[in-house]
Design a protein around this nucleic acid. Structure first.
Lengths: 240, 240
DNA sequence: GACATCGTTCAGGCAACTTTGAACGGTGGT
DNA sequence: ACCACCGTTCAAAGTTGCCTGAACGATGTC
């Protein structure tokens, strides 16, 4: 009978192999980008990650062999995508633990206003942006992307959006996508972007919950914001 | 400005470091055992994992350095426990993906009756046992263990237990713990053990939903079981 | 058809990790 | 005080994984 740590145990072998794939910064970031923002061509990944093509290519070959990504060839472009939607759950759990463990691991480290909320182009990123997306998906106002090509879409139940002061009908979707998931650079989790993300940020500023800091990208949470936002966006808590 | 894959990014560095710790069968199994069943002494771990003491010791030193486990010395024994309860979420996500990905990765592999349900001493293990524990915890009939010493306990809302045909008052807790989390050897997720686990299994057999196969530890799900169990235990689905 | 672009593969050299065996302090029992 | 046991550390050896640079096939453009 195989022991607890015997690699003949299929699930154990599969789990350690998966963890090994996630244990490299290039591979992990690649998977996070694909899971949050959908399929990318290899050249887009090379540009985004700022690494050499062979270097990324070697990692992509590993990810392919491990069955974590699929490739589709379109002309001379190779389009990579997450193989199984469930991977997003693993990536999210990993990032959440990593983010939560940081203050403990580095006692000197404090939570900065930048961590909490800052602008990413015209929408909110940081813990607020991440919590926003999670909240709206959970409440059915948005349908989650699967990282395979199925994009973030408006969901059946717009009530959570209305509660934030946004009328889904007024979102200008003519010139840009209504909603996109955008990988947060700090927390490594997807946050809400697109026309809807911009509209939500505008409304929160109008309501006096956030103030754009001049000259920086920091979004300062006002006293009213600390009072109301945790209730409006469950998952966005002061927590130290 | 640091790039996407730069290890100066704190969360990325933390996440890859965590994944590297999980990428070894001994370390991963150790963490799974501690998270599911609570603190263990090193000698208990050595016996359970069937590895040499120095070999395990080196891995435990790594886990300590990574801040994933805490040690407490009691006499000549070293008691190890999970450092942060949140780790259980990461381990669960990893095991779930690894289990789900298996049929895809190995086309020849089929789901066996053993995977679905078998006995572990006197209670149910396999997918059914795992789903049972998850369901009862989610419904508030049990409080989740945190892997640090806080054990599985009866929770405030016993309704989910009653729905399974079990009267919480009738569980004999005098001679053994009422409920324990027990690491499932196949799926690498905690399942329901203890007096309560035994009582639940007895009731499911009495109701004709399961049949103990003679001479083996397999629990056969009857036609009635396939009809009723997915409704009684959300999370326990036929799925292929 | 010539050329640039895109993606992939390969071999070398370098760094990191894992295992093993032996040795070492600390604790409890006799 | 002696001994058995528990846990930990260390160095050497073998293995594995990663990056670099060059090369190659395939595609689309001029």
């Amino acid at each position: 009978m195989a022991g607890w740590t015997d690699l003949d145990e299929p699930v154990l072998a599969s789990a350690t192999a998966l963890a090994a794939e996630l244990a490299d910064p290039i591979r992990l970031t690649t998977l996070q980008l694909l899971a949050a923002e959908g399929p990318h061509t290899m050249s887009r990944l090379v540009a985004a990650l700022e690494v050499s093509a062979p270097r990324l290519g070697n990692h992509l070959a590993r990810l392919r062999a491990a069955g974590l990504v699929d490739v589709e060839h379109a002309g001379r472009h190779a389009i990579y995508r997450i193989a199984r939607p469930g991977l997003a759950d693993v990536l999210a759990a990993l990032s959440r633990y990593a983010g939560d463990a940081l203050p403990t691991a580095r006692p000197g480290r404090e939570v900065t206003p930048d961590d909490i909320a800052h602008t990413c182009y015209d929408h909110a990123a940081g813990r607020l942006g991440v919590a926003l997306l999670g909240h709206l998906v959970e409440r059915g106002a948005l349908t989650a992307p699967d990282g395979r090509g199925e994009e973030l879409r408006l969901g059946p139940d717009a009530e959570a959006l209305v509660a934030l002061g946004v009328d889904p009908g007024e979102v200008d979707a003519s010139r840009r996508k209504p909603a996109t998931a955008c990988l947060d650079r700090i927390h490594r989790l997807p946050h809400l972007g697109g026309a809807l993300g911009a509209r939500v940020l505008d409304r929160l500023v109008e309501q006096g919950l956030l103030v754009r800091e001049e000259g920086t990208r920091v979004l300062v949470v006002t006293a009213a914001g600390w009072r109301d936002l945790p209730r409006m966006v469950p998952g966005f808590s002061p927590r130290a």
